[in-house]
């Protein structure tokens, strides 16, 4: 057989992402990579390792910890940082902690805004980062479909859908003035299936929460919420029960719904995903508020 030198779609995606990550390292003074512990972050981190091999990562990782993350996420994060020798900056909104801002008393929106969006903006301002990588994909949600790879944010970290730069070829315009920044999305063109397949092929370690296991859960708003610690106030008539569940997406445990599942390996997870045609953000309560809510959050500075 003659050689065709054709790259598969996954190889093309991988190479494009590496090019983007290197471009940021070459052009920005002080980049940082948002690391959320989830599957997309895991893939992004692996791509960054590849981009600079054999050198270490030329930037730090930043984790915005809302303090309501699953415990298993934090344990996984700490172990992984040790294994790959990366530098992690953890940012917690101490003021919010002092005021005991939580999703139960303050509502999902206000809690997310204070503990996540505001904390992120604070961390970015304090760090003086001129570029921040995020693991968002365009296929996740409708308003993401139009997001740039280099997404321009003003000095208040806000996103204006009307004031974005056209992006042609692989030529990214990362020029910013003092205080302005760019959010960079190297996984823009990946789909959920691409991410899982890459995890499978590359054997990228994942938080066990993605795989089915008996976990203590309660039924709320048509989804299963895991009782990860004693802070989850049980409503009248609620008793935690053990169910084989897993999570399609990871965030704050009181806001992240589990699905009943028997998938314990990556191929099983993929098969379940393919057969169960519901898009992944369905388990994430943050999008449910109303149509266009993600867009609103992005305008405010959310990733």
């Amino acid at each position: 057989m003659t050689k065709t030198y054709t790259l598969t779609h996954l190889q093309q995606l991988e190479n494009e992402s590496i090019q983007i990550i290197r471009e940021v390292a070459a052009e920005f003074q002080n980049p940082v990579m948002l690391y959320s512990i989830g599957k997309d972050s895991g893939v992004m981190l692996r791509l960054a390792e590849k981009a600079f091999y054999p050198a270490p990562l030329p930037f730090s990782l930043l984790h915005v910890n809302t303090t309501y993350k699953f415990r298993e996420m934090i344990a996984f994060r700490n172990q992984l940082m040790k294994d790959i020798g990366a530098t992690l900056i953890e940012k917690i909104n101490l003021e919010g902690v002092k005021q005991n801002i939580n999703p139960f008393d303050h509502g999902t929106q206000r809690y997310t805004h204070i503990m996540k969006t505001e904390t992120l903006k604070q961390a970015l301002t304090e760090g003086g980062y001129d570029a921040a990588f995020g693991g968002a994909r365009r296929d996740e949600e409708k308003s993401r479909a139009k997001e740039r790879v280099f997404s321009f944010r003003d000095s208040r970290h806000q996103w204006d859908p009307k004031n974005q730069r056209p992006e042609l070829w692989d030529l990214y315009n990362g020029r910013v003035k003092q205080g302005e920044s760019i959010r960079v999305f190297p996984l823009s063109n990946w789909t959920e299936l691409d991410i899982w397949l890459y995890i499978h092929l590359e054997k990228i370690p994942m938080v066990p929460l993605y795989f089915a296991k008996e976990r203590p859960v309660v039924r709320r708003n048509g989804t299963w919420i895991m009782v990860d610690d004693e802070r989850l106030p049980l409503q009248k008539g609620e008793t935690p029960e053990m169910r084989m569940v897993r999570f399609r997406t990871l965030g704050c445990y009181p806001l992240t719904g589990a699905v009943e599942s028997s998938a314990t390996t990556v191929p099983e997870v993929i098969e379940e995903m393919l057969r169960n045609k519901n898009s992944e953000r369905q388990g994430r309560m943050i999008d449910f508020d109303e149509a266009g809510s993600m867009e609103q959050k992005k305008r405010e500075g959310y990733f």
Partner: peptide
């Protein structure tokens, strides 16, 4: 996709699918 264009009934940017 975006709210504004949905209301105007037109697509105003490049969207990737």
């Amino acid at each position: 996709g975006l709210q504004a264009e949905r209301e105007q009934g037109i697509t105003i940017d490049v969207a990737y699918r």
